[in-house]
Write a protein that binds this DNA or RNA. Sequence first.
DNA 1: CATGGTATTTAGACAAGCCTAAATTTGTTT
DNA 2: AAACAAATTTAGGCTTGTCTAAATACCATG
Lengths: 220, 220
Amino acid sequence: MQTSTTEDYLKAIFKLSGPTKQGVSTNSIAEELSTKASSVSDMVKKLADKGLVNYVKYQGTTLTSEGEDIALHVIRKHRLWEVFLVEKLKFGWDEIHEIAEQLEHIKSPKLIDKLDEHLGFPKTDPHGDPIPDKNGKFPELNQYKLNELTIGEKSILIGVSEDSKEFLRYLDGINLKLGSSIEILDYFKFDKSLKVKINKDTELTFSELVAQNLNVSKEN
Amino acid sequence: MQTSTTEDYLKAIFKLSGPTKQGVSTNSIAEELSTKASSVSDMVKKLADKGLVNYVKYQGTTLTSEGEDIALHVIRKHRLWEVFLVEKLKFGWDEIHEIAEQLEHIKSPKLIDKLDEHLGFPKTDPHGDPIPDKNGKFPELNQYKLNELTIGEKSILIGVSEDSKEFLRYLDGINLKLGSSIEILDYFKFDKSLKVKINKDTELTFSELVAQNLNVSKEN
DNA sequence: CATGGTATTTAGACAAGCCTAAATTTGTTT
DNA sequence: AAACAAATTTAGGCTTGTCTAAATACCATG
């Protein structure tokens, strides 16, 4: 059984790996977890000893399949608890993250299965993020964050995860609406920004932050 | 904010203090928490430094009012989660303790108040134990464990917390039924056993374990 | 291809809690 | 009152995960 710190590291590495499963830098893990690079260096060595990550000095970290499995189960728990907090306890969607950060570490497989049932086997959390099933498989949703797509894929905007006025005005300004098409032209690893073509005519660049908040369906 | 270890110590000391709020021995805390007396010695010193317990070497430990307040809030959380597990998730009453042991350490006052509301402000947990309110006050229930009474008090049996065949047959054997009267004649500190008079005619002795499982109303 | 800057790792410490073994206090028994 | 047993505390160490400071590796730029 893992400590909650171990679970936090695996979850952070999973999140930072992105869909391409690239190696994750020590510094990025440190930033994600609000800790120091030296602590991360120590820790990933220990995780590697336990077979949860692949780690080569100076070359970044990836999850092993066992590590990924644990990360997916933690994400499952986090997202199910978020559904509970919003649906049953009537929390606002902006208050639930840090509570779910704690609840996700509760150890009891039976608890989480019963919670899943109690909630009616939801497929997504209150932010629209997909909830892995008990085997760690994501449901087939045809709903993605734009930054989960790869170069060349075409998609349709079906929603946003952020509803601040600033963000929505920005989308207006570039003429991006629900139903607009978005094609990924290029991906810049350095800042994770995306070059895209929208509405089949306009090329522009999205920062990672913008891309994360655009929910799309892949076009077949 | 307290660590969950601190909360566990305070809860254990509260439980062991009993209604008389007697000083608690190092060894009894160690046993309650499945740890060693030397660890307890260390820890109560630290708790005393933080103002949560009164500790005099070789003379036992009591809670300060601040320590008691924390203990009562942990108990509140534990019992509310137990209600949730049984009422909402349909757990059996025998499976919930260790899950609640984890859930009781979740930090979020708002969470616990919303949970309380969601559950309809229950006054007792699935074992019949009273749930302190958000100020740490126990509800007035006129329902007690027999071992919470003091010498001289008279009571009526209204329920049992343990429903094994062995226990129920034992009660039959001494002619103790719902509605029977029980008067506390004496209390033996050494093994926490009670000398009682039942049905206004028969004197006998209950072990602590038996007394804990007899729920009574005080007679006015 | 040398050099400087950034990323990363190592070295050495620290706090929280736990342990075993040894010392000390308390309290009981004669 | 002495001596022994039980309870308790102290001493010294261990693990997990953290930190700062110093050393080292990588890489881009000139």
